[in-house]
Nucleic acid binder design. Structure first.
Lengths: 335, 335
DNA sequence: TTGTATGCGTTATCAC
DNA sequence: GTGATAACGCATACAA
């Protein structure tokens, strides 16, 4: 069933049917209701594919994230979906599993699908960003969130990782801690770099000593890693009295080690995580962490897209912006 | 840039360009490489919207789930995505938040988008299924997974909830438990009904007593509910020595109550959850539960779609099938 | 207020 | 092996 069929049935033109369905005001109320009633009756569903071809808009965005089965990213996606639905957009989803090649392939596919915009959190191993520049060149709107590349001229929605890390150290300092270790993330992603910088700046600011021996990379971000890294840390420096882990699961691994060795938390060693995943409040002791508001970030990312797409359709120039989503420290039992 | 532009540039016809790009064998190798090289050089991306309009296939499926920020469902989606990408399909995602109206609206939108198929796990409050029958009527392939309606003539991918619940009771019986309570899910969804039936059948089979007083509905499925429900249970019947909760978070709530009242787990009261969410292995004591293999279920759902869409294109009739994804009990510290 | 005509970018049928 | 041409279903400029 198409507009044509309806037109024939009602003895009017296709153009009129089209306009009537879109509630144009140069169509008489009489024919409008005639068309709308008929459409209702026969359950006609217009074909968005044809409309998209004609208008050159798909009202669809693509979202590319590293991992879907992940508390933070699924929250972001949830926020994007909520906002997208409100503004009548649909969402194509792609998952990279942190693979650069998958990311390249998926972006290509989204351009093939002619999405109006792409919202992306880049894969950990991505360092070449040509595929992202291709998106910008194709005049498709690009919004980066969370894991971003500074080298790409596109808007960015992020948290202030430096500040959040700074606040964690400040908190530990206020709790009387003096020798603070850091279980950091992989070397490449900006988030890991910024958390490390914030950590270092805070140590300096509060005149606490920094020592590279007290920083261990945990690049898989899994619980077991936190365990072994903590073992290593305390072996190298038994005076450590606090651990700031770059992620909640790594922090839980640290707690595992401390519990297993009868080290009192937080009296002897305090532990702070990052992200406020579900597991952080289900653990014992409950984990102090920083909330990373995924839903808000998702909403903000979509809103940024919407703002830019509106400008684009009005033929205004769009300047990339960077938006920070506020975080706060959640003080629980582990510190 | 379009096929037309390429044709003009290379002094050949649009038809030939199209065929060359699709590697048809009635076009010479020479022109094929000429076209492909040029396309490579200028980074031409064909327009799938036009292709879809022409072929009446979008190579896109829609997925409708109750909650994205949820360990099980994001796993299912992850499985769907993996399989879809392998077969060159893209995925439009919709989230109902368990709302029937949202579900109706979103299905309509997916039909508007002319997806080739819809994979759905229905909302808890959905009892009218006309919108699902509409999908079938529109000749769009419909696959149900996990939360399904028996009333809809479409394939179903589920776990054997009855059997899984039966196995839980069997396990508790083997541990010497005699008075087994059940924190059940809401009354409507089939999964909750089946888990309850499996529980009851097992009690009968092992000649354990059943008493409606030992069954409490926890329809929100949250931790706090498990706490208060357990309080209620033990008040009504202090002889209860095992609790089977319909979901891991409810089980954790039960554990909270038992720990708070110095009741030994599992010696005095054993606890078993359902789903094997991430939190179940991060809790203390670690939770005995049933794994619900989300990724496998997602893959199976897509494969079922693929099978049916192939048949459809070959004009063969498709009969709805029901597939069971095997589960297994994961024995941990709480039982 | 309504209708006519054109094009969006492909694919596919049928000539040549 | 190649090309001309007609759809696919809708939106819109313009004519009536």
């Amino acid at each position: 069933m198409t507009l044509k069929d309806i037109a024939k049935k009602l003895n009017i033109s296709v153009a009129t049917v089209s306009k009537a369905l879109k509630d144009y005001d140069d169509v008489s109320l009489a024919t409008k209701t005639r068309v709308q009633d008929y459409v209702e009756k026969v359950k006609f569903t217009p074909n968005s594919v044809a409309a998209s071809l004609r208008t050159q808009k798909t009202k669809t965005i693509g979202v590319v994230i590293p991992e879907l089965n992940h508390y933070f990213f699924s929250a972001v996606l949830s926020g994007i979906l909520a906002e997208a639905e409100k503004h009548d957009y649909t969402v194509l989803i792609q998952q990279t599993h942190e693979s650069y090649n998958a990311e390249k392939r998926q972006i290509k596919k989204l351009l093939f699908k002619r999405v109006d915009g792409i919202l992306i959190s880049i894969a950990g191993k991505t360092n070449d960003t040509q595929h992202l520049k291709d998106v910008v060149d194709s005049e498709t709107i690009l919004i980066q969130f969370d894991k971003i590349s500074k080298l790409v001229a596109a808007s960015k929605i992020i948290i202030d990782d430096r500040k959040a890390a700074f606040n964690i150290v400040q908190h530990l300092h206020q709790q009387g801690k003096k020798t603070i270790a850091h279980l950091r993330g992989p070397l490449l992603p900006q988030v890991a770099i910024d958390r490390f910088i914030g950590y270092k700046q805070a140590l300096e600011h509060f005149q606490l000593s920094y020592d590279a021996k007290r920083v261990v990379v945990c690049d898989k971000g899994i619980r077991r890693e936190g365990y072994t890294a903590t073992a290593k840390l305390l072996q190298k420096d038994p005076t450590i009295d606090a651990i700031f882990a770059h992620t909640d699961s790594v922090a839980l691994g640290a707690i595992d080690y401390l519990l297993a060795h009868d080290i009192k938390i937080p009296e002897q060693v305090a532990v702070v995580g990052f992200s406020n995943w579900e597991i952080s409040k289900h653990s014992r002791p409950q984990l102090t962490t920083v909330n990373q508001p995924g839903i808000k970030m998702g909403r903000a990312a979509f809103q940024q897209f919407l703002k830019e797409v509106d400008k684009k359709y009005k033929r205004q120039t769009v300047e990339p912006e960077t938006k920070f989503i506020p975080t706060r420290l959640i003080h629980r039992e582990s510190s």
